[in-house]
Amino acid sequence: MTTATKNPYLLLTPGPLTTTDSVKSAMLIDWCTWDKEYNGLVQEIRSELVQLSTQHTGDYTSVLMQGSGSFCVESVIGSVIPSNGKLAVLVNGAYGARIAQMAGVLNIDMVVLDFGETERADAARLEALLQQDAEITHVAVVHGETTTGMLNPIREIGAIAKQYGKTYIVDAMSTFGGIELDVAELQIDFLISSSNKCIQGVPGFGFVIAKREELALCRGRARSLALDLFDQWDTMEHQNGKWRFTSPTHVVHAFYQAMKELAEEGGIAKRQQRYENNHRLLVKGMERLGFRTLLPAEYQSPIITSFYYPDSTEFSFETFYKRMKEEGFVLYPGKITSAQTFRIGNIGDVHEHDIERLVEAIERNRFWS
């Protein structure tokens, strides 16, 4: 699909991201939340999400939740962990830290394993912690930490969590739909993502892929009315796709269209190939211009890449950002404290020729050279 001509720039961010004309066009009709056709569409989305997430579809279900991805994460943290439970959070970026912050606000007993900003989460350290602290009941980790572009080893972490009998929560906000995975094989109990990431919809709701037997235990646990994950699922499940409160109808239709376009592209495997190709071309082009990546290649996701500032006192990210926006590209500032960086995303309706145009634009605007 081509980028809409009315777009003044391409979003090279981890979401919201550049969407196709047809996804945007799906939002031009107003829908009633009680309409049977609309509710049936919600049920189709829920079923398709499970099919995208695992071959063991009978063991899993899905639930949609209004709000940004963080709303959905908080619905899981606040609904899944019982009052006598204890959460271990593996942190190596802002989004792992946000999970810990949520748990703190909700007065959930918690321990944080902090790996710093540029190191992968380590399953061996988790095992050592679980051996020391038998009170831990739940383990949470971010799959793709867009603070840096880090891809955490969720298979190894899940294996340790399950070896010690823990419930396993994975924030796959920026990876689901863009990186192949099977929640059953990875032993994930709750996987969380959002409408405006790799499935390439627009912001407005998140979703949870949940193991049915684990979700069934969550009745009455929620610390919030609006973010009660079990009650939201129970209503959708038994009232044919009905949301408890007003749903983002336009966003849901855009997401439905985006899911059709994911299938037309060839599914998650093909989309992952496109993202990986975007990433390879980006790194190759940026290195040719003298930029260095923050992370080693073996840690790097194909979602977003962090680059160090050039070794020049004349470089100003604000000036660079403004010039790139004038050229038709919106980049992301850095988010770590230990180094001066900026980030470039590869996801959304972004293709090889877009990356080539970006590198050419950066070369034209090397004011710091």
Rank of each mutant, 00 (worst) to 15 (best):
D133M: 08
Y9T: 02
T137Q: 02
L215Q: 01
K197P: 03
L151P: 02
E314K: 15
Y9A: 10
V91H: 01
Y332A: 14
A258Y: 09
A254P: 06
I99M: 04
E156R: 03
A121C: 15
R343D: 00
V183Q: 08
E117R: 13
M173Q: 14
A263S: 15
S195C: 09
L11V: 03
V42H: 09
T305G: 11
V330M: 15
A216H: 05
V202N: 04
K166Q: 03
L281F: 11
Y309P: 06
L282N: 12
Q187K: 07
K36P: 13
G328P: 02
I192D: 00
K242R: 15
R98Y: 14
L186G: 04
C72G: 02
F230G: 01
E117P: 01
P203L: 11
V89M: 05
F230I: 01
T167L: 00
R271N: 10
W34V: 10
M1L: 15
G267R: 11
P248W: 07
G266R: 08
G290W: 10
R271Q: 11
A121P: 03
S224C: 05
S224I: 08
A361I: 07
Y332N: 13
T146D: 05
K260P: 01
A269M: 12
T305L: 06
R223Q: 05
G96V: 04
Q239F: 15
G15R: 08
G328K: 13
G165K: 07
P302V: 10
L229P: 05
A258K: 05
Q273I: 11
E180H: 08
T13H: 13
A222D: 02
V63Y: 00
E74L: 01
K260D: 12
L17D: 11
V111I: 08
E74A: 04
R46P: 10
E318V: 07
A4C: 15
I303G: 06
T337C: 12
I29C: 06
L227R: 15
S247G: 10
S195L: 04
V350Y: 09
Y95Q: 06
Q132I: 04
R221Q: 02
L281Q: 13
I169E: 00
Q55P: 00
D35V: 03
D189P: 00
H56E: 15
L229H: 08
G165F: 14
S83H: 00
Y164D: 03
A140Q: 10
S316K: 05
V252C: 02
G69P: 04
T61Q: 09
V91I: 09
M1T: 14
V359N: 05
Q163W: 01
K322G: 08
N278Q: 07
T19V: 15
E214S: 14
P296W: 12
V73I: 12
D228C: 09
E213F: 06
N277C: 13
K6D: 14
